[in-house]
Design a protein around this nucleic acid. Structure first.
Lengths: 350, 350
DNA sequence: CTGAAAGCGCTAACAC
DNA sequence: GTGTTAGCGCTTTCAG
């Protein structure tokens, strides 16, 4: 009990205070099996017994342990949403999934496993192994970075996976097309020196957004300047250094616009620009990707490529439900993106 | 999608395909107990054996089942966040909790149990019973509506609970004070007919916000008109009818301003106003409560009472960690609110 | 150093 | 109708 966060290694078999099925059985004067039958509405229990057991259940406030039940019966009525972290992208998806699960027989369980240590295999394999088949009946995996083992024992749908829609049924958006829209918007505004703050190299979405960036530039006859492309890793902390390199270059002129691979890093570009005394959008235009709520609230509000995040979540759930019901539909659902023009973009300074 | 979602009642004991500890044991040619020791870094295993087992673990992609492990050992290293639903309020909290859990030994599991059927006791008692002591080592319960049993077997912290900070350690904000700020802002703008779209009657926060509304009015010498107070239940769907009654009254003049108990219902007021041809803020001022991201993105952006949602989540986690470490601090943390003036409020029309 | 055995809370066969 | 038995996958004594 010394260091604050260290979980104690006590080997107590089970915390006291929890009401178990045997407590109910003892108090009601019946066997454990009978309680189980009553609780699960199985046939073959005398009404009087049933009533008595139910009364005790009520009195003691008994509720069966999800863990014990699932270990035994193999199904839980719970759908898992596996994420690396609860950040704006995954929580928006979660809102969509949550709304869609309403009215079904399933409950939702979102799990953010530790992502640091797991060297081999990635967090999603680890999380899936820990939960699949024992805790959840099916899972939605958000932005998995590794290809998922094909022998996962439960139905799985991936949202925005590393590999693109190969193995696992997948929901994603038109990342390359969205990126082209974003860059085209900048070109239309007269920008020529357009930088790209790229995403995580291990994510297909990031790769495709960079592809779209290059395509738009090439289509407009603008050569891609390697000095204007930096990896931001989708995260503000990782994007900090590359952003400074972009906006405060050792040599060569500074770009007049930045297309960031997602909103979170675009917002960081906004912050670095402010820090460097650059006005947005007068001196610098910035475009993001995702349209997470945070992109509406920053200063100035971000022009961004919207992904229908709630819809993507709902769609993933629908596919999972189909899989669960044994009536799988299409294995890949690609949703459209849409450019949302707000105040972070303006004509290029001349 | 009618019956499609019904979970099948198959009694398969365990889905095939899952790699269990016995698979590893068999392939490695050792006992299950030995594998367990190796995986958990227990002393007393020959280095050569250990290496061999580890190789098989790697090869088979074995990861211990959270369920089985916790059932046996009583602790899991997982902290549960229990919510009724994944909506903006709970997901903002989740972001704060997630950021704060980073770097600790714990993982996060957010659970949204079915909220409909549970007649007795409320969803939070049910969820807690199902998870506590078997799946999670401790829990943060978001806006519980019933007083929690004092004999819960694990540490629990409540965020914004029904009862106020009585039994369970609690994180909340100054709801009454925040409401006073909101209404005072309206009064300062010259409004006199100020309506209140109240929250869920069973939630302490909603009660306090209404109290603050009345206090501010009384302090300004404005009589509270009962016709101007309606229950919106914190939800757009529930708020629809009362909002119409407020904005399109059968008799008596319409209010010039509405203070809604939370942002989601305030946003619905915006929609109903638009539908009725009322301009916001020229014809009608609207103030919300929470400052969820959605309040930044609506049209017009909402003036609202900000709760430090991320901070509240982080604080709840810190309290829980203290409880877990056996060094509990204060049992109640009240965080301040702050009025954020945006574009949905303006001087009263004369 | 390693394995056999017990048991966590629960459900599903099968007896009584 | 009801109780007994046998595990689900795992950890933990305790013998060997």
């Amino acid at each position: 009990m010394s260091t604050a966060a260290d979980p104690p290694t006590t080997g107590r078999p089970a915390p006291p205070g929890r009401v178990t099925i045997s407590d109910v059985a003892r108090v009601a004067g019946v066997s454990v099996a009978t309680v189980s039958k009553v609780v699960n509405n199985r046939y073959g229990v005398a009404p009087s017994t049933s009533a008595r057991v139910l009364a005790v259940v009520e009195e003691l406030g008994y509720e069966s342990s999800l863990v014990a039940r699932s270990l035994r019966s193999g199904r839980t009525g719970v759908i898992g949403v596996l994420v690396a972290e609860f950040e704006p992208f995954s929580t928006e998806l979660l809102k969509g999934i949550s709304a869609a699960v309403d009215g079904t027989e399933y409950e939702l369980l979102a799990y953010a496993g530790r992502t640091d240590g797991g060297a081999a295999g990635g967090w999603e394999r680890r999380s899936l192994s820990r939960l699949a088949g024992t805790l959840v009946d099916a899972a939605i995996v958000v932005t998995p970075t590794v290809v998922m083992a094909p022998d996962v024992p439960i139905p799985v749908v991936a949202v925005d996976p590393h590999t693109g829609p190969e193995g696992t049924p997948t929901v994603d958006t038109d990342n390359a097309g969205g990126a082209r829209q974003a860059v085209q918007h900048l070109i239309d505004l007269g920008h020529r020196r357009i930088a790209h703050l790229a995403g995580r190299p291990d994510l297909e979405s990031a790769r495709l957004r960079e592809v779209g960036y290059r395509q738009a530039l090439e289509a407009a006859g603008i050569a891609v300047d390697p000095a204007l492309v930096r990896v931001g890793g989708y995260r503000p902390d990782l994007a900090d250094e590359p952003t400074h390199e972009l906006l405060d270059p050792a040599d060569g002129p500074r770009p007049t616009a930045v297309f960031a691979a997602n909103d979170l890093s675009a917002i960081h570009v906004l912050e670095v620009a402010a820090e460097l005394g650059l006005r947005v959008p007068e001196d610098l235009s910035v475009v993001g990707f995702d349209n997470v709520p945070e992109s509406w609230g920053c200063t100035p509000p971000l022009t961004t490529v919207a992904q229908p995040l709630h819809h993507m979540g709902a769609e993933a759930l629908r596919m999972l439900l189909d899989l669960l019901a044994g009536t799988p539909g299409e294995r890949h659902r690609r949703l459209p993106t849409e450019l949302v023009v707000r105040s972070s973009t303006a004509p290029a300074p001349r």
